[in-house]
Design a protein around this nucleic acid. Structure first.
Lengths: 276, 276
DNA sequence: CAATAATTTTCACTATGTGATAATTTTGTG
DNA sequence: CACAAAATTATCACATAGTGAAAATTATTG
């Protein structure tokens, strides 16, 4: 419906959008911005850019550093801490994951991922002993929804309606991920995953990694995210996988139980439990 | 001109400010908000609140959860990761702190704090072995600028101009923190701290904790933050403190050296994009 | 303490945000 | 799977609040 005409290539942005666009400028590739660079980048005048920077600074989202440039500010760290403290799933998972990683082989990682709207992000990770091959699922990275055990197990438990609209929108990508090109094939393979209650994948995200994904539900059996192992393929024989899978499933159940037992008032003790 | 009379106590806020005010609603005490609650709280109409929520959602700063409510979103975690990866001081400190904690007694903690504008925040913490008494300086908490070794050592190295304006603004608090009520007394005690190159405090933040604070400077000798120990007072005899202090100072120098040697291009693992 | 850079004010103008109501979509439930 | 209730978005007329240019002010640096 809302088709843009070819002539008007520039997206008309509202003021509030531009304010957030300033924040979005701060990336890993470029973590510091001067006001005038930002003004040029966004196509606004210097005074306007100063107004934006000031607002974001007052909010603590950015902060001046030496020279005339700015970086992401203390509010980011503060809000991240809020998530760590108040996200019930994350709170419940910390201890469980700490215990669970002990069972894994060297070079393995344990990941807790959370469904955000229609995206998946790692919110907590625990590394096992020994040298680590790269794990793309680092805390804070958005992950594709259609590849890897971590994501697939979540995908499999989305509402049918959601899946349908995803299929319509991202059909090509879904087909590319090996779900087959038809809605029925997609639906059927997800059904199979759901029935298993877990999924094992090999090298779908990182070469040399085996993933074991298990769903985590809330009280109403709505999917919240997943708990998953990323094992080193070299060290992960069938025996190990078969041993770890039920443990991972049990871990997810533990997380759910702790989460549901926890007092719903989340304020309680503000103290964060940090293992070692 | 636009002086509000007593009747109109509410600060006239611009649209962009209100957008950020929505974000500020999400606190530890209340980590979930519905659109209509937020609308009521901010005194705007429902459609306007929906517009705000939509913008913040598109930016990933908040995210819908089950029911009609929203929580802080994936962008927060992502940006926190960006800070972790791209803040030069934090990057340099990680290894140093890991090594340093080994020298401490049981129940001690090592903290890296960063000066943000005129506030101090813990950006990294490493806990030692053994049971931990509470440490108020948790990662993500804003700390007072005038109390505790961590903050005082930073305070002592602020620009004279900055100190002067702080003294004018927060004179009472400064006096209460034991710096004496006069500018000269304040200035003199800070000078003494600066000359020592470190500061040891007892129980200024948490009872039963001894703090050892050491400054961290950037290439231009501008204060960036501090490295500090929070020891258990019961276990921290004079001997231990005298042993740890030079180690902490050396640690800070190490951090500075690593920071300055590091390639200025901060893009190591270039991949960050969503994969989608 | 100059000299230059960085930031804020002022001001006239119009784009952009606003609320009330209505239309639409999503969600929960039998 | 359809229905009702809730949640979300669209419409539209209006006035607020954001905008850029230039000037004034305040920091920073040698």
């Amino acid at each position: 419906m809302a088709q843009k005409q070819t002539a008007d290539f520039e997206t008309r942005e509202s003021s509030g959008d531009r304010l957030l666009a300033v924040l979005a400028l701060f990336t890993i590739e470029r973590s510091e911005w001067t006001v005038e660079d930002a003004a040029a980048q966004l196509g606004v005048s210097a005074p306007t850019a100063y107004r934006y920077f000031k607002r974001l600074t007052v909010a603590g989202l950015i902060s001046p550093v030496s020279g005339a440039s700015y970086t992401l500010g203390p509010a980011i760290i503060q809000m991240d801490r809020q998530i760590q403290i108040s996200d019930p799933m994350l709170r419940a998972a910390r201890g469980v994951m700490h215990d669970l990683i002990g069972h894994a082989a060297e070079g393995s990682a344990l990941l807790l991922c959370r469904l955000f709207h229609d995206r998946v992000m790692c919110v907590h990770q625990v590394l096992g002993r020994g040298p680590q091959a790269p794990v793309s699922y680092e805390r804070g990275r958005l992950m594709p929804l259609f590849r890897g055990a971590t994501s697939k197990i979540i995908l499999a438990h989305l509402q049918l309606r959601t899946l349908k609209s995803l299929f319509e929108r991202d059909g090509a990508e879904i087909a590319a991920a090996g779900f087959g090109g038809t809605w029925d094939a997609f639906r059927t393979s997800l059904g199979a995953i759901r029935r298993d209650g877990f999924i094992v994948t090999r090298g779908e995200i990182d070469a040399g990694r085996v993933g074991i994904g298990v769903p985590v539900f809330d009280k109403d059996r709505t999917i919240l995210g997943s708990l998953s192992f990323a094992l080193s393929e070299a060290r992960a024989g069938t025996a190990l996988i078969e041993r770890l899978t039920p443990l991972t499933v049990a871990g997810a159940r533990d997380i759910e139980r702790i989460m549901n037992d926890a007092p719903s008032s989340q304020v309680s003790s503000a103290r964060l439990r940090v293992a070692r």
